[in-house]
Design a protein around this nucleic acid. Structure first.
Length: 822
RNA sequence: GCCCGAGUGGCGGAAUGGCAGACGCAGCGGACUCAAAAUCCGCCGGGGGCAACCCCGUGCGAGUUCGACUCUCGCCUCGGGCACCA
């Protein structure tokens, strides 16, 4: 009986005990007002789905938590908040599916998320928990809208928008994938509706430039650069022929057509022009003879959705307007066409078509029998013989201008600047920078979001809701189903819809659109430190103390949307004097994905793993260690539950080790070196988010201790501290078992002695002709002669050197010696 | 099509241009046990050899180097993003 261990490792007991202690003692709550070394450790907050957090979420949260806990041990006051991104189409669609109001559904989901997040042992400061659906939160989302509205950064315009006929709402361009709704997969159509936009394009240049100043994952920065889509080129004016010929043809409008091109070097090859069907000049240009055809084409292309129009491999279509324009370089008269491959929302909505050097123009010219003139040729080709093209020649490197008058012979890139300069001198064009980025459409004709705080008055126009009247509460309505009208269901709720005008007091109507979920999440990091203030969105002192976010970890699926919008809003709020910084996230790292059987986890694949049962069976600490041991945080890993044994066995071993400690024993030099080296190595690995190798280093130390029969108390204690970021409950319990008071997180990361990190005697591999043949033991820092002598004395080396001449010796101190023989 | 990222044992994965396969899983052998589990010890890329050892080996093909998983060039495959953006 007495030899039965009564203190075996019981994760459930240990974890429940420490969850309660942390809550009771406020272990995870930093001093918000007087931190000595504030560190804002942020993880992208989750959308509280009905299914709960899956293993992929747990991987990400734990990854962020390990880092926060590590920083805590390194002596920082770490603020690690958590909240819920609970508004949006996703929640609403689910609510529609199950027929329960999201206002009822969401709190349930949140409760489940909270339970899971507590169970996994996150170092969250629950005092600052938030949900975007809380009026105390969205009051300030509305306030932010008003700041942008007042600053002229929010505006309303009628816009061709992506309309999902199934979700019955407008979608942002970002929510359309391959012509289909990102959420439901329905084919998206084009509709024209009044929409609210934020002027993010005003910030395109700054959003791009600042990318060089922030410490972000390179993949994320690249994604943002591509999304911003900067191109340099020229805007060029093509006069519409106003002379007799056009008058005869019946063209009434002689306003010039402006085009944007990135290839001014090919100007001499522009043999026709194409306008987008929606282009305002189309009506005026069209000749009576072409009228019927043009009108029919415009109508047909408007009926299409915005997205399927943009599918690149479609057969080209278009019609001739009857008008002619003049190529400003050649003076030639060229026909003006309309075609839907030219998009109104990019550039000027009109192009000069250079079929010889642009594939789209080439296809169009082929189909409609338009002229193709080559104006670039390989520098080494005979100028006389230019064969007909079978596809557009888009290469520029090594190409020179031909058929381009006085620019002939110039390399393409020089031609670009020369022609642009000439156009500018002639006042027919100028250099221009274009961005692919569009303004951010923030309105949604839906129910489950913060109402946009605007009131429409017949006499005063659109009026901002006074800030004292915020929040505009989202009313709880029975029928939140969107309909086909293009108007939010809120319009059907009359006592909410009609309000007195804040300016004149007459009966007016509320804006019924709600704002995009991305607006909620674009500023939540600002709210966290200030959730205890209800009279301001973010307290200036708190914000100055904690922001910008020190380290942000999240998924790369938000590389362009959320992260770009947050940056934009940061810039706006900075420029309006609300923030002392304009980049919200100093350091951002994208975590990888957890895959299951080689495939991304998703509901549709049916391979989503729910962590609860694993945590119940193995404990949160084992599960955390297992997830972190799978692979590098930034790369993700393959979830196979067989491997969870490993970390559990390891924790058991450490548990046993703690029970066997003895103080003051003699330590071998070797084990001391390993001990110090591990303290350093693990810290470095965690800092670099290489948690898998950090854990491996701890395992190695334990293996060596067992091998050496070492049960040194100090060493075991350091081991427990180093385990704390990964297995926090376990570490707390063992810290206590070792006789310590208080939290292990107050202990600080174990100090290492730089002199003891490396041993005095080392093994140097000996290579002969680059192949390792032996190793020699020499004192650290030995010079070449010493190591060479030792190497040559080694029989294993002699075997390969005997009878040969050593031509060269490469010696890398303390690393390797290579003998080159022949 | 363009832009990122990645290809290493049966599996997850390690390796500032310097001992390829750390650490772990699975597997095999052994100890303990009436037995099993747990635990502990050993083996564990392929080929050859009784053995000491030797040869081959990091998606494929070249190259740079005393030395290449690592750098360069050209391919192949997979994952992700963008895409009629002028």
């Amino acid at each position: 009986m007495s030899d039965t261990p009564i203190d075996g490792y019981r994760p459930d007991v240990v974890e429940a005990k420490w969850r309660a202690r942390w809550a009771e003692r406020g272990t995870n709550n930093p001093d918000m007002d007087h931190p000595t070394r504030p560190f804002y450790n942020l993880m992208m907050f989750p959308y509280p789905s009905a299914e709960g957090l899956h293993v992929g979420n747990m991987f990400a949260f734990t990854g962020s938590d390990v880092y926060g806990r590590f920083k805590r041990l390194m002596g920082y006051d770490v603020f690690e908040p958590i909240g819920y991104d609970a508004f949006g189409i996703h929640s609403e669609n689910y609510a529609l599916k199950v027929g329960i109001n999201p206002a009822e559904l969401i709190p349930r989901n949140i409760a489940n998320f909270r339970r899971q997040l507590e169970r996994i042992g996150g170092m969250f400061d629950w005092r600052h928990e938030l949900s975007t659906t809380d009026p105390a939160y969205y009051k300030w989302t509305q306030w932010i809208f008003l700041q942008l509205f007042k600053a002229g950064k929010a505006y309303k315009k009628k816009a061709g928008v992506n309309w999902c006929p199934n979700d019955k709402t407008v979608l942002a361009n970002e929510q359309v994938e391959g012509g289909r709704c990102e959420r439901c997969g329905a084919l998206v159509e084009q509709r024209f509706l009044e929409q609210w936009f934020f002027r993010i394009t005003d910030y395109a240049d700054r959003l791009l430039r600042n990318l060089d100043t922030i410490d972000w994952s390179e993949t994320t920065r690249t994604a943002q650069r591509n999304w911003l889509g900067r191109s340099e080129g020229a805007e060029i004016e093509f006069p519409v022929v106003a002379g007799d010929s056009n008058v005869e043809r019946g063209t009434r409008n002689a306003e010039p057509i402006r085009v944007f091109t990135t290839r001014p070097d090919t100007l001499f090859g522009a043999t026709f022009m194409v306008l987008a069907p929606e282009h305002p000049l189309v009506a005026g240009l069209t000749t009576p003879a072409q009228q019927a055809e043009v009108v029919a084409y415009v109508k047909a292309s408007m009926a299409q959705d915005l997205v399927s129009r943009k599918v690149g491999d479609r057969e080209k279509t278009g019609v001739f307007t009857g008008a002619l324009a003049t190529n400003p370089a050649t003076g030639t008269r060229i026909p003006v066409w309309i075609a839907d491959y030219v998009l109104m929302e990019y550039g000027t909505g009109a192009i000069m078509a250079v079929p010889a050097h642009d594939q789209r123009d080439f296809e169009f010219a082929r189909k409609f029998g338009l002229q193709i003139v080559r104006v670039l040729a390989p520098a080494d080709s005979a100028s006389s013989a230019l064969p007909a093209l079978s596809e557009a020649e888009t290469e520029t490197h090594g190409y020179v201008l031909v058929n381009s008058g006085r620019f002939n012979g110039l390399p393409a890139d020089e031609g670009k600047s020369a022609i642009t300069a000439w156009l500018a001198a002639e006042d027919r064009g100028n250099p221009v920078v274009q961005y692919r980025l569009h303004d951010w459409c923030i309105s949604r004709q839906r129910y489950w979001g913060p109402p946009i705080p605007i009131i429409y008055c017949d006499s005063c126009g659109p009026v901002a809701v006074p800030e004292k009247d915020l929040p505009v509460i989202l009313p709880l309505i029975e029928d939140f189903r969107p309909d086909d009208s293009g108007v939010s269901p809120l319009a059907r709720h009359e006592e909410w819809y009609y309000v007195p005008c804040p300016t004149c007091g007459r009966r007016a109507r509320r804006e019924t659109d709600v704002s995009d979920t991305f607006l909620d999440s674009a500023w939540y990091y600002l709210r966290y430190p200030s959730t205890d203030f209800d009279d301001r969105p973010f307290d200036p002192v708190r914000t100055r103390t904690w922001c910008p976010v020190t380290t942000y970890i999240g998924g790369n699926e938000h590389a362009v949307l959320h992260l770009l919008y947050s940056r934009f809003l940061g810039m706006v709020l900075h420029d309006l004097g609300h923030l002392h910084f304009d980049e919200p996230f100093t350091r951002f790292r994208a975590h990888g994905l957890i895959v299951k059987d080689g495939a991304k986890m998703s509901k549709s694949r049916g391979n989503v793993v729910i962590p609860d049962e694993y945590i119940a069976q193995w404990g949160a600490d084992t599960f955390r260690m297992y997830l972190m041991f799978l692979g590098p945080l930034q790369e993700g890993g393959d979830f196979r539950d067989a491997g969870i044994n490993g970390p559990r066995r390891f924790l058991e071993r450490v548990w046993t080790l703690v029970g066997e400690v003895e103080a003051g024993g003699e330590l071998t030099k070797e084990i001391v070196v390993r001990w110090h080296a591990t303290k350093k190595k693990v810290a470095e690995h965690i800092e670099g988010l290489h948690y898998n190798t950090a854990i491996a280093a701890l395992m190695e130390l334990v293996n060596h201790m067992k091998e050496a029969g070492c049960r040194d108390r100090d060493m075991v204690q350091d081991l427990v501290v180093m385990l704390a970021p990964f297995a926090p409950h376990f570490a707390e319990e063992n810290w206590e078992r070792l006789g310590n008071q208080g939290s292990v997180f107050a202990a600080g990361w174990p100090k290492w002695d730089e002199k003891l990190v490396v041993s005095d005697e080392i093994e140097v591999p000996v290579q002969v002709n680059g192949k390792t043949r032996s190793k020699v033991r020499v004192p650290r820092g030995s010079d070449e002669a010493t190591v060479l002598a030792a190497a040559l004395a080694d029989p294993a080396v002699q075997k390969f050197v005997a009878g040969k001449v050593v031509r060269k010796v490469v010696y890398v101190p303390d690393r390797l010696i290579n003998l080159v023989v022949a």
